[in-house]
């Protein structure tokens, strides 16, 4: 097993698990490590770059077909193994995903379905009583984030350059919205949900915690300890809850709160 870590996700996964060996039986791009968080059993999962990956359009850390189904399996197996356990293991998703894979083969063989299976894996784990925490350690982009990390009970993020959440890369966003890249950047400065930076994302009320720690700090023992503590705090905060209610309608998502409240009023008629 190489100790070379070529993404923030790989580096933080290794740091948080004291460089434990990933479980066998997964593609090299999906690292699954059973370790601890606090004194509780935890399954850590990260999607990482693999320059030799079978599918060429998913070699830079994207969530592709193989990654989607492997994520689904890692989650499904954890739920099954803990089915009758009193304390179900924590799931920690370490996220640094530049995007989903873009390719013809990917679409033909149902990449949307692979990502649905991965998202469902986390949803089922959370709803079965596994506390699920996501560490956004780099990019959390689009379908990649929907498949890996977004379904956690709590989202915890590092800060600064390189930590980003968005629905689409700037180039593609510019083309699809018929704007220049500069135009997209300008709007991102003015419209909170259009921004790529994590500070703007935090204003949408979706984060449980944002740590003033750079993604490059994974070799700093104090930083790693602070991240561990933050993840453990998030698990404590989850308690027995199993839904996403803690982050719905917070921050600048005031329209979300208004719509939800109005719907609850008129639903029964």
């Amino acid at each position: 097993m190489s100790t070379h870590n070529d993404s923030y996700g790989a580096a933080w996964l290794a740091a948080l698990t004291d460089h434990a060996e990933p479980l066998a039986g997964y593609p090299a791009s999906v690292r699954v490590i059973d370790a601890e968080l606090g004194h509780r059993a935890a399954r850590y999962i990260a999607v990482v770059p693999d320059s030799q990956a079978r599918f060429p359009r998913a070699r830079a850390g994207e969530v592709g077909l193989a990654e989607g189904w492997a994520l689904a399996r890692a989650l499904h197996d954890a739920v099954e193994a803990d089915e009758s356990a009193a304390h179900k293991r924590v799931i920690v998703a370490v996220v640094d995903v530049p995007s989903q894979a873009y390719g013809r083969t990917e679409e033909a063989y149902g990449l949307h379905q692979a990502l649905a299976a991965a998202a469902e894996g986390t949803i089922r784990a959370r709803r079965a009583g596994h506390p699920v925490v996501t560490l956004i350690a780099g990019k959390a982009m689009s379908g990649g984030f929907l498949a890996h990390g977004y379904q956690a009970n709590r989202l915890v993020a590092l800060s600064g350059e390189g930590v980003q959440v968005h629905a689409m890369g700037k180039q593609a966003a510019a083309r699809i919205t018929q704007r220049s890249v500069e135009g997209v950047e300008q709007l991102a400065r003015e419209i909170t949900p259009m921004a790529y930076d994590i500070d703007s994302y935090e204003r949408l009320g979706l984060l449980h915690a944002r740590l003033d720690i750079a993604p490059t700090a994974s070799d700093d023992a104090k930083a790693v300890e602070r991240v561990r503590q933050a993840l453990a705090d998030a698990v404590a905060d989850i308690g027995d809850t199993r839904d996403l209610s803690a982050r719905i309608g917070q921050g600048e998502r005031t329209a979300t709160a208004a719509v939800r409240q109005r719907l609850a009023e008129v639903w029964a008629g």
């Binding site: 689009s142 968005h166 259009m194 921004a195 949408l204 982050r247 979300t256």
Partner: peptide, 11 residues
Amino acid sequence: VRLQEANCGLA
């Protein structure tokens, strides 16, 4: 996702 509301749509 409506790209003009990117992160709100994704959430």
